[in-house]
């Protein structure tokens, strides 16, 4: 274990040297003092572990040194509810690319490499091609937004995301009027994402939005949580957050964006079309065929915490109900 950590230190060093010759080191890729110290601390704690002292910390055992991110809190779009703990948010995840158990993404995502990262943009837009993440996201304009997250499995969390509105990214590509939908892919790397070795879903994981949904000010591209870069289990380095839809719409580790005229085929919809619709708006009165969506369990309320009622559009009806005027929400679930 110690050896592998030293090795990755070495690799980082080689990595930097290669970048130096290109004279292009994005500031956030340089190991900061705090990340460096964290890494030292990790090595020390590994030493402690061998002495029989257990330390449990999210990300422990995985060399995920994350940078802190500067952001300005967006009060308008933030809930006043108490956010879940960093530990809950980083150990209880659905990310089938790393396994089907809630703890699998935390346990199995250590070898995933979110840096460097590039995104392929294609389809109905004036500007298309491959772009580095820093071309897409202005790291000087990050916002913090505290959103509710409602999973289709009837549990929920409150997460302080850091990122930028998706519309700010999409506008850069000048979408054409024929771009009625936007689809997104999660990266396909079965060697780094062990869950992709089994065909439990159609890989790469694909999700999509109407262009109106994608351009909505609430739709967010997150790069961090709690002022730190995303950990691998949360969808590093960039993931969508659509707070009024069930969690599976908020696709993680995005490496492809397509502007399309037709509605994209999405992974869960292909897997079970009668259970997971394209829209997947949170709606307590439209049940999942196999379970009720009327109530949800808020993670972190402890063993005796009661379930709470689920609200239409996850409580964001004032902002998004206009998108669905005249749409039969029972038919278009």
């Amino acid at each position: 274990m110690l050896e592998s950590i030293y090795e990755s230190d070495k690799l980082d060093f080689i990595d930097m040297k290669i970048k130096e010759t290109k004279i292009k080191i994005p500031s956030y890729e340089i190991t900061s003092e705090s990340a460096y110290l964290n890494r030292r601390k990790l090595i020390q704690s590994v030493g402690l572990l061998s002495l029989g002292v257990g330390i449990s910390e999210p990300g422990f055992g995985q060399d995920q040194s994350v940078q802190t991110l500067q952001s300005i809190k967006n009060e308008k779009y933030s809930t006043s509810e108490t956010p879940n703990s960093y530990s809950d948010i980083t150990t209880y995840n659905n990310f089938y690319e790393f396994g089907m158990q809630k703890s699998d993404p935390y346990m199995n995502s250590g070898m995933f490499e979110p840096k460097p990262w590039s995104v392929e943009v294609s389809g109905e837009a004036n500007i298309t091609g491959a772009f580095d993440i820093e071309d897409l996201i202005d790291f000087n304009k990050l916002e913090e937004r505290i959103y509710r997250l409602r999973c289709v499995e009837a549990w929920s969390m409150v997460v302080p995301w850091v990122g930028i509105p998706l519309s700010a990214i999409l506008k850069k590509f000048e979408p054409l009027s024929s771009a009625k939908y936007v689809s997104f892919d999660t990266v396909y790397r079965p060697d780094q994402m062990p869950g992709q070795k089994r065909r439990i879903l159609r890989w790469p994981y694909t999700e999509g939005l109407t262009i109106q949904e994608a351009m909505h000010p609430l739709t967010f591209m997150a790069v961090g949580i709690y002022g730190k870069e995303l950990l691998n289990q949360n969808g590093a380095p960039m993931r969508l957050v659509i707070p009024w839809k069930y969690g599976f719409k908020s696709i993680k580790s995005i490496n492809k964006i397509r502007f399309q005229e037709r509605q994209p085929k999405t992974s869960w919809n292909i897997s079970a079309p009668q259970e997971y619709g394209f829209y997947a708006n949170v709606n307590p009165s439209v049940d999942h065929p196999r379970w009720s969506q009327a109530r949800e369990r808020r993670i972190g309320t402890g063993f005796f915490g009661a379930k709470q009622p689920t609200t239409l559009f996850n409580g964001y009806a004032d902002e998004v109900a206009d998108l669905y005027r005249g749409l039969n929400l029972r038919k278009y679930y």
Partner: peptide, 15 residues
């Protein structure tokens, strides 16, 4: 685990 040993019951103990 429910008493907090063996890294506990996780984020959703009831589940």
């Amino acid at each position: 685990k429910s008493l907090g040993y063996l890294s506990g019951l996780g984020a959703n103990p009831v589940e």
